[in-house]
C-alpha cells in the first residue's frame, strides 16, 4: 500500500510554516513586550514598567474613545445580528428558486466592495442627511457599522441553519406547533450558538474598523482605532502599545468566552 500523502513531510514545510508564524506573531509579541517599556521609545528597551498602562488609563481621550467604540460596536452588532438572522432564515428556509444565489451575493456585498468606496459613498450620503436634518449624533456611525457587519453575522448563522436537521422543524409541525412556536421552541434554541458566533464576529469587526469610521465620524466622535491613528501621526510612545495590548487581551477574552458558550450543551 502506498503511504498516504502527508503535506507535513514535504521538504521545506517546516521552514515555510515557521516563517509564516514569525511574520504573524513576532510583530504582535514585540508590541506587547514594549508596552511594558520603562523608557519613552517603542524600539529601545529600558526596563520593565507599567507606567504606559497607567498613562492610558488616566488619558481621558482614550477612555472616552474606548467607551464610544464599545457603545457603537454593541448596538451595531445586535442590530446586524438581528438583520442577519432574518436574512439567513429567509434564504435557507425556503424552496430553492432562481436568483437565490444572487441574493447571497447581494447580502454579502459589503465583503466584496472595497471599504474605501463604501466609506466615500457614506460620507457623501450622510453629509446630505446632516444638512437636511441637522442631526450629528452617533447614529451615522452605528448605521454604517451595522451595514458592514451584517455579512459577518450572516455567514455563521446561515452555516448553522444549513447544517441543522430540517426534519426537526417538520417534526415540530407534525406535533401541532405553528410556525412561530416551531421557531421559538426548536429553530431558535438550536440556532443560538450560530447567533452568538455572528454577534461576536460583528462586535469584533465593528470594534476594529478604521476606514469607514474615519470617513463617517463627525468632530469629537473618535473611536479607539481612529484615536490611535490620529496619535500615530504625532509622537509615538509605548502608550499606543499599552492600549493595543489591552485591546488584544479584550478580543481574545471575548472570542474565548463565546467559544466556550457556544460549545456548552
Amino acid at each position: 500500500m502506498a503511504r498516504t500523502f502527508d503535506v507535513r513531510r514535504q521538504t521545506g514545510f517546516t521552514t515555510i510554516a515557521a516563517i509564516c508564524f514569525a511574520l504573524l506573531y513576532l510583530p504582535i509579541m514585540t508590541l506587547v513586550v514594549y508596552a511594558f517599556n520603562a523608557g519613552t521609545s517603542i524600539a529601545i528597551w529600558e526596563g520593565f514598567s507599567l507606567r504606559w498602562f497607567e498613562a492610558a488609563w488616566n488619558n481621558n481621550q482614550v477612555i472616552e474613545a474606548s467607551w464610544r467604540s464599545v457603545r457603537i460596536a454593541s448596538v451595531a452588532a445586535v442590530l446586524a445580528t438581528i438583520a442577519a438572522t432574518m436574512a439567513a432564515l429567509a434564504t435557507t428556509r425556503t424552496k430553492p428558486y432562481r436568483g437565490l444565489a444572487g441574493k447571497y451575493a447581494f447580502i454579502n456585498m459589503p465583503l466584496m466592495v472595497p471599504e474605501i468606496v463604501v466609506a466615500v459613498a457614506l460620507l457623501i450620503f450622510f453629509s446630505r442627511i446632516k444638512i437636511a436634518t441637522g442631526y450629528t449624533g452617533l447614529g451615522y456611525l452605528i448605521a454604517a457599522h451595522t451595514a458592514f457587519c451584517i455579512p459577518f453575522a450572516y455567514l455563521p448563522i446561515r452555516a448553522r441553519l444549513e447544517s441543522m436537521d430540517q426534519s426537526l422543524e417538520t417534526a415540530a409541525a407534525d406535533l401541532y406547533a405553528n410556525g412561530w412556536r416551531t421557531f421559538r421552541r426548536i429553530t431558535l434554541p438550536l440556532l443560538w450558538p450560530g447567533i452568538l458566533a455572528g454577534l461576536m464576529l460583528a462586535f469584533v469587526i465593528s470594534l476594529d474598523d478604521v476606514v469607514i469610521t474615519e470617513f463617517v465620524k463627525s468632530g469629537g466622535q473618535d473611536t479607539l482605532p481612529t484615536y490611535m491613528l490620529g496619535q500615530l501621526r504625532r509622537v509615538v510612545t509605548p502608550e499606543m502599545n499599552a492600549i493595543s495590548t489591552v485591546f488584544l487581551l479584550l478580543s481574545i477574552g471575548i472570542v474565548t468566552l463565546f467559544f466556550f458558550m457556544s460549545r456548552r450543551k
Binding site: 436537521d165 426534519s167 426537526l168 417538520t170 417534526a171 415540530a172 426548536i186 434554541p189 438550536l190 450543551k265
Partner: peptide, 11 residues
C-alpha cells in the same frame, strides 16, 4: 409521524 431518522429534539 415517526421519522426515519427519529428527528428527536436534541436540546
Amino acid at each position: 409521524t415517526v421519522f426515519q431518522n427519529y428527528a428527536l429534539f436534541p436540546h
